[in-house]
Write a protein that binds this DNA or RNA. Sequence first.
DNA 1: AAGAATTCCTACTATTTTAGTAGGGATTAA
DNA 2: TTAATCCCTACTAAAATAGTAGGAATTCTT
Lengths: 136, 136
Amino acid sequence: MKLTNKGRYAVMAMADLASNAKGGPISLTEISLRQNISLAYLEQIFLKLKNNKLVRSSRGANGGYVLEKPASEIKLSNIIYAVDEEVKTLNCKKNSKRGCNNKSTKCITHNLWDQLDQHIIGFFEKVKLQDLAKLG
Amino acid sequence: MKLTNKGRYAVMAMADLASNAKGGPISLTEISLRQNISLAYLEQIFLKLKNNKLVRSSRGANGGYVLEKPASEIKLSNIIYAVDEEVKTLNCKKNSKRGCNNKSTKCITHNLWDQLDQHIIGFFEKVKLQDLAKLG
DNA sequence: AAGAATTCCTACTATTTTAGTAGGGATTAA
DNA sequence: TTAATCCCTACTAAAATAGTAGGAATTCTT
Ligand code: FES
Ligand code: FES
């Protein structure tokens, strides 16, 4: 499974966006300073967030980003997936007949990892961006 | 967070050990063949499992490994930790005052990752080696 | 006693992934 | 016109992963 800085940063930045909303767009420079994340790295991340319709951008001076939807409608899973972090503990291709052992049956732990996947995904599906303020 | 082949193999091998118990010890060669895992890699993994008192070894011809405790008493978390897979989604040191942003307060997502940790650890604590047979 | 099977242990290495950096172009407000 | 900003791609250093390799020690079998 993957859960790395990129995913963490994405969630952090989205949370920042949500909690510092001030009407107009918020620049990445601001977020970079507040959250201590490299600007160039943030740019990469926001490209993906934008392509996944989680934020809307305005270019030029005073430009920046705003949430595309209310924070109550953005699930953590949306963010995580947007930046290509896969919650994937299975070693095999899920819809293949072959197992990770390259045999024709699934390995003895297949169902276990599958359940773990569901467990983690469930968590990400349940938590909304809005909830982060409460958690924090 | 880390959850890689090493951890998967460890669980697989332990499950193999549990389900193919035949009184005497089981050699890694057998497991290697059944589960399609490189023998040398298995050896490394079993060193750790042994150091963590999850298996007992006997050397020499006809040697091999047996579970140190009944499968019903071995938690998945025991196995995962034994091979150094950390369920660690936090980016900062948990008991430090500093945050992952290197500031003096914890970041806005800290509690979130902390909860996710608990969520995943809870899963590993709950599932016993014995349950794998049922799952599989 | 010899040989084979096995665990034990450490060191090395190729590959992949991660975490950025770098550089330049396009757009817009002032 | 200039500065601030987003946009986009390519590159790169460092770390982690997934093994390989090699040999020593032990024990069973013959
Ligand atoms: S994880 Fe799917 S077959 Fe092993
Ligand atoms: S994860 Fe702990 S401070 Fe950010």
